[in-house]
Each structure stands twice: as structure tokens, then as C-alpha cells.
């Protein structure tokens, strides 16, 4: 069972490595969205500092929506998804591996690049840690919850927009706690409460989402 997880994660990373452009586009989208805000709302430093956590988090949310569609679509099209559903490992374990791989490819780069964006917004360096930590805890939840949407909309026309429509409202708590943690830290109130809540969401999503994704895939594969 663990071998299946290792095998799938390694496979998806290898595929991402051979198609670097796919990884690059979502990351570039993140950077561009975050860079557009100052152009839209003005470069007043206090204003930018105030909106930075929210902007970076919303940009991260949108960017991960962009890459969610790829989680199962290609595997569905070439038939490998059916083989996974008929594999030796339970489908719940298989999709957990898929979500993990998706996060490594689409979520982790956001965590790494976020402090650079924070720099653009003149966020105090003391907050970089909280920002990165909040994204580190929050982006896997986006991959897990998003996976449910990706599985439900598998193979539907207009699936990309529909996917965002389904998943974005469900991700509101992650956004609130993620951006909130940085704001709390900025206000000197300590972010541990929000970070713990994010961690709790991660644990809850990791426990429940794979089974929901597996159920959704079985529905969509029929």
C-alpha cells in the first residue's frame, strides 16, 4: 500500500519534471495576480502592507484552482485512472497520494515564493515566517478539498469554471484563517490560534477528503 503511494508520487513528480511548463504557469499566475494589485489600488505603502496577507492568500487560492483540474483529468483521458481504481491499494490511499503529489507540484512552490511577494508589499520580515507557515498548513487543505471538486467535475464540459465555483466557497475558512493569522501576527496579537486552527483543518481534511475524493471518482468513472 505504501509502495503504491511512493510509486504514484514519484510518477507524478517525474511527469511534472518532464512537463515543467505546467508547473511554471500556475506559479507565474500567482506572481502576476499578486503583482497586479498595487497597480489596481495604488502604491501607498501602508495600504499595501494592510492588504498584503489577504492579497497573497487570495492569489494562492486562485492559483491552486488553476492547477486542480490537472489532478485527475490527464489520468482520466488516457485510462490510467481506471487502472488506479483497479489497483491493489484502496482508492482512498491512491487519491491521497495524488493530492500529495499535486500539493508538492502546485502548493509547495507557492509557499516558497510567497515571502518574495511579501517583499513587494513591504511586509515586515518578521512576518515571513507566519506567512509561509500559514501557506504550508493551508495549501494542502486546498489540494485535498479541491480534489473533491476535481473528481466531481471529471470530464464535464466547462469543468474548469465549475470546479472553481464548487471549491472556492468551501475554501473560505482556509482563506480566513490563513490571511487572519498573518494579520494577527502583524497586529502583535500572536498567530498561534489561527495556525492551530489551520492545522486542525489540515488534519480533518487529510482524514476525510481522500474518502470523499474516492467516492466522487467512483461516481465519475461509471
Amino acid at each position: 500500500m505504501l509502495d503504491a503511494v511512493r510509486c504514484l508520487v514519484a510518477r507524478d513528480l517525474l511527469l511534472a519534471l518532464r512537463r515543467k511548463s505546467d508547473v511554471g504557469t500556475a506559479l507565474l499566475f500567482f506572481v502576476i495576480v499578486a503583482s497586479l494589485f498595487p497597480l489596481g489600488i495604488g502604491a501607498e505603502p501602508n495600504l499595501l502592507r494592510a492588504v498584503a496577507p489577504g492579497v497573497i492568500w487570495v492569489a494562492a487560492l486562485l492559483s491552486s484552482m488553476l492547477s486542480l483540474r490537472r489532478m485527475f483529468e490527464a489520468d482520466h483521458a488516457d485510462g490510467t485512472l481506471e487502472q488506479m481504481a483497479l489497483g491493489a491499494a484502496p482508492l482512498g490511499v491512491v487519491v491521497a497520494a495524488k493530492a500529495l503529489a499535486h500539493w508538492l507540484v502546485a502548493g509547495l512552490p507557492l509557499v516558497v515564493i510567497a515571502p518574495v511577494l511579501a517583499l513587494q508589499y513591504d511586509v515586515s520580515p518578521s512576518l515571513y515566517g507566519v506567512l509561509a507557515l500559514s501557506l504550508l498548513l493551508g495549501t494542502p487543505v486546498l489540494s485535498l478539498v479541491g480534489g473533491i471538486g476535481a473528481a466531481l467535475t471529471l470530464g464535464l464540459r466547462g469543468g474548469g469554471v465549475l470546479l472553481s465555483l464548487l471549491v472556492l466557497p468551501l475554501c473560505v475558512p482556509v482563506l480566513i484563517m490563513g490571511a487572519g493569522s498573518v494579520e494577527m501576527a502583524a497586529a502583535g496579537l500572536g498567530a498561534s490560534g489561527q495556525l492551530l486552527l489551520l492545522a486542525a483543518m489540515l488534519v480533518g481534511a487529510a482524514a476525510a477528503a481522500p474518502w470523499a475524493i474516492a467516492a466522487a471518482l467512483r461516481i465519475s468513472l461509471e
Binding site: 469543468g159 465549475l162 468551501l170 470523499a212 467516492a215 461516481i219
Partner: peptide, 30 residues
């Protein structure tokens, strides 16, 4: 938004069995 998502999902699936079951799962997750 959750209601609209539920209705949009069901509306975009032609096969009624899949639409029913996919919508049901989404409602439970919601």
C-alpha cells in the same frame, strides 16, 4: 454560492444517475 454550485453541478451532468450521485456527495461535503 453553495446552493448555486450544487445546481450548477447537477445541471452540467447529462447522465441523471451521475448527476444525482455527484450532487449528493457535494451536498454532504457542503
Amino acid at each position: 454560492f453553495l446552493y448555486l454550485g450544487f445546481m450548477a453541478l447537477q445541471a452540467s451532468i447529462d447522465d441523471t444517475r451521475r448527476a444525482d450521485r455527484a450532487g449528493a456527495l457535494l451536498a454532504i461535503v457542503g
